[in-house]
Simulated scan of single mutants.
Amino acid sequence: MSDHNHGHHHHHHVDVDDSSIWKLWVSIFLNLMITIAELVGGIISNSLALLSDAVHNLNDTMSLGITLIAKKISKRGANPSKTFGYKRAEIIGAFINLITLVIVALFLIKEGVERFFDPQPIDGYTMFWVAIVGLIGNFVTAALLWKNSKNDISMRSAFIHILSDGLSSVGVIIGGWLILEYELYIVDTILTVIIGVYILWHSYYMLRETINILMESKPADIDLDQLTEAMHTVDKVHGVHHVHVWRLDETSTLLESHVLIDKEDINEMEAIKSKLKTLLKEQFGINHSTLEFEFEPCRSPSHQVGSGHAHEEHEHDHAP
């Protein structure tokens, strides 16, 4: 007597903002130009900070490319193989970006420390003007990505890359001026290490969030005790267990749970289910829930669907 109401639910998470695609293309071009300018400028001026900024920018260009590829993949709808679609491609893209960024940051810090013990003369004039060109490019790119970065983790990781690069360009401009005016070559080394540490600090928090999504961790803003207590407040619900809450991507939170009701209330099951789904959506932002109804509690944690239940009901409800 099980009721599977799956026929009308196709999991198409295709709500990608098309404007983000052309913005990424423009950003990739701008960053590639900045990277080339800073690499040439860094070699001519012998500035490690400028070369660091160039490497950082090259990584930004790669990160934007990965984000673009991930976006294109994530636009594909669900299919029999990928029943949730390709939305998580963006999370994987952000993860690759952040790992490469950490490696770059550690490399910059190592180079900066080595230069500290072996200081070298630097052409502050070239360093100063090339960094200004870099800053302008970073500013334009950041302005392009800002809107899309508010609710999109892959665009936010790209935006943070650009923002941190803009800040490091400001540092290199100040460093170039200090070298021009006072021949303070040590500033170049200090800047290189600061840029590296700054990248590491930003990467850590975003990497943690990305790993949590990939590991299907419970969203930080949902308290499981509060959630189960709230589900218990629905009339005729006697128990809630086997509760799993996870995120498919940054915006889609999913839940599956077993719900215990009396056998006499079988005719009211649809109403109970509807109340539970409304509660989950309104109070906890869970837009996709799978509820399995039981008339007696599970006998073991390794409970299999269909073992010893007079009635079971699966229902997928997907928010538009």
Rank of each mutant, 00 (worst) to 15 (best):
V14D: 14
G171T: 06
R88Q: 11
S154M: 07
K218L: 09
R299D: 09
M62K: 05
D60C: 09
I174G: 04
P121I: 11
I266R: 11
I34H: 08
V170F: 09
G65H: 10
L163S: 10
V133P: 02
I211H: 04
I99P: 03
T126A: 10
L279E: 05
I194C: 05
S157R: 01
K72Q: 12
D3M: 10
V193C: 07
G7D: 13
E270W: 00
S47Q: 11
I99H: 04
S274Y: 02
S74Y: 07
I211M: 12
M215S: 09
A105Q: 12
I122R: 07
R88T: 11
I69G: 02
S217N: 11
H258W: 03
F139N: 00
H13N: 11
E282T: 10
V170L: 14
T290S: 10
L98W: 10
N148W: 00
K23W: 08
A37S: 15
D18E: 14
W22N: 14
T228Q: 01
I162D: 05
I122Q: 10
E209V: 00
S52T: 13
N46I: 04
L135N: 09
G171D: 07
A70T: 13
I34G: 06
S157V: 15
V240W: 05
L248H: 00
V193I: 15
F116Q: 08
A70G: 13
F95S: 08
L191S: 03
H316N: 06
W146F: 15
S81D: 14
L106Q: 08
E216M: 12
V237E: 01
Y204D: 01
H8D: 13
W129E: 05
L248G: 04
D265L: 06
L144S: 06
K71I: 11
Q120C: 06
L68E: 07
I213H: 05
T83M: 14
L184R: 07
S289N: 08
